[in-house]
Design a binder for these strands. Structure first.
Lengths: 341, 341
DNA sequence: GTGAAAGCGCTAACAG
DNA sequence: CTGTTAGCGCTTTCAC
């Protein structure tokens, strides 16, 4: 049986109230009393019961996050990094992190309801945002505190942090254009994710900025898997007029592209240029090492957590909308387009 | 303000007790009363307050897990998979998962104390077990329910699930021996982890079983990183009598070995055989595709969670010690040793 | 300085 | 069948 305030009170001969106040550090307790209580509490091994405290304070000091396990996005190292960032910041603020996976059947809103309606957490982190994100709409409607990692196209305003995917893809595309490429294919992420739209925008804007007409046939929608990257690359590279460069929306698909090129006898970096997105550890390991757009996953995680904690503490949230700048990491998977002939 | 039992009681004109019982499905409530209460509760949007319930039931229905973010092991897809398994099983049992990262300074025992002493969780999952694991010793001493993923060499008995690393490495080694290899190097994981000992045992046993003397110079301790795998492989391969095969304790180091071999002009699968461990997605992506020992991470996760839930529910824990069998996945990174000359 | 009392929202023993 | 009472462990008025 854990030691309670009552136990201490009994032992020292003061009331529960006084014990509570002494332990909480109030200054209206006699110094001698305080000393006695502090020492006794330590001796008895007292630790406050978190649940009782929560009930009383009407606050859980807990942040909820729901991870879609079935999606391609889990098991993705990007996620682990993000979560590590969230967790480290939470520890710092003495917040707990409640992680739930999306229940397979009922749809993920049930998981949100559980956290929100049953008051298991004080605030939520929403990840992998979607165009008309029903989770965000729900939290907004419930007037429940949250910070999203990623934007949405709901009219309503809400606090978010995002990585500027448009800018990232703009840079990647411009880099290839600068190398001399004109036929640049683009393998998108599924358009269920908000970031897909932003990234493709960056690609199109870069083409436009350099007077290269957008060629619809060079744009394919992928599913983020290596397999799919392989298949799509193969279809692109066996065309009559294949692209000289391929941009993939994540590193996994990019690695599939590289494998496809290799199987077709092409040398990546010479016969074909490939760019990825994310900069997961894999990018440095495959051969040739992948030029890709680095997403600061860990930083994104702790920042989102920090924003939410500030929001919950009603400190001034200096920025409701944060856009982190990704960075193009040039490695060895690109080069000038092969000369004709 | 969320709806409480009191609100419903007021509205329907029954006592809080009756409302509680009707909602809980007790059969000592008049059918008409029950109907009224159920309907009213639904209309008012009642959802029980989890914290109040926990305080009263003296049970949190929450499982804690502490992840060392700094260690090489996070960001590792193996972990994501494991966590997904834990999470999915927890959802099924209606348990919550409290995830904490290890606080950087104080040592991780603080994180355990927070969960245990402040009664935030009913049970814990311990991962990445160590030889004399102080976390396990602590939980044992506190008599706190937990299940470990991995064994330890404490004398005390405790419930665990582990993947049979010895068997896995035995198979891997035997496979290489079968191909004709005799000079098989072994790059270990750090000996802070319990599994390192078990795996190396498998390697040594396989050598012994086939009458190959153990050569200490062929055994190196690695740090699990790709970089380190590269460096160690380089040192092995530039010796006078280099090994014809290298086993690495995880896929990351194995990929480093492959990179080193490539840089030395060796063709992996022909001039050098390489085997990894884990079978993370990377293993299928690198070139040549990596022969490795598959660890069932997702299964391990849900099984551990299931064991713990059973333990907490005091159902008969059919097995306190589970050993999952890993499987050697043969791909393209091995072949017979090159003929002398 | 200290204590009594109230109450967070819920469940359960017991009485009627 | 239903209500009263008690209490989980804690914090916070409000008296004295």
């Amino acid at each position: 049986m854990p030691v309670t305030l009552k136990d201490i009170a009994q032992k020292v001969g003061f009331s529960i109230t006084t014990v509570s106040r002494a332990l909480a550090g109030y200054d209206d307790v006699a110094e001698s009393t305080r000393q006695l209580i502090l020492q006794t509490a330590a001796e008895m091994g007292y630790h406050p019961n978190a649940t009782a405290r929560r009930l009383r304070q009407r606050r859980t000091d807990t942040i909820g996050i729901i991870v879609p396990t079935s999606s391609t996005r889990f098991g993705d190292p990007f996620f682990g990094e993000f979560l590590a960032g969230v967790g480290d910041k939470a520890v710092e603020h003495e917040f707990d992190i409640l992680v739930s996976t999306r229940p397979p059947e009922a749809g993920e809103l049930r998981a949100y309801e559980r956290m929100v309606l049953e008051q298991r957490v004080d605030g939520m982190i929403v990840i992998s945002t979607r165009p008309q994100d029903e989770r965000i709409a729900y939290l907004l409607e419930q007037n429940f505190p949250f910070v999203a990692f990623g934007r949405s196209d709901l009219e309503a305003d809400f606090p978010y942090l995002d990585v500027d995917g448009e800018r990232g893809m703009f840079q990647a595309t411009e880099y290839l254009i600068g190398l001399g490429h004109r036929r640049i294919a683009y393998i998108s992420a599924p358009f269920t994710f908000m970031y897909s739209y932003q990234r493709v925008e960056g690609y199109r804007n870069a083409l436009a900025a350099h007077g290269i007409p957008f060629d619809e046939s060079l744009m394919l929608a992928g599913d983020l898997s290596e397999r799919n990257g392989y298949a799509l690359a193969r279809s692109l590279l066996t065309r009559e007029a294949p692209p000289t460069a391929i941009i993939a929306c994540n590193d996994w698909m990019a690695s599939g592209v590289i494998a496809a090129a290799r199987d077709l006898g092409l040398t990546v970096g010479r016969d074909l240029s490939v760019v990825g997105f994310d900069d997961v550890p894999l990018a440095q390991i495959i051969h040739p090492r992948l030029t890709t757009v680095h997403q600061p996953a860990y930083e994104a995680g702790w920042r989102v957590c920090d924003m939410l904690v500030k929001l919950l503490r009603e400190e001034a949230l200096t920025e409701r909308h944060v856009l982190l700048q990704p960075e193009l990491v040039v490695r060895e998977s690109c080069g000038p387009p092969p000369s004709r002939g």
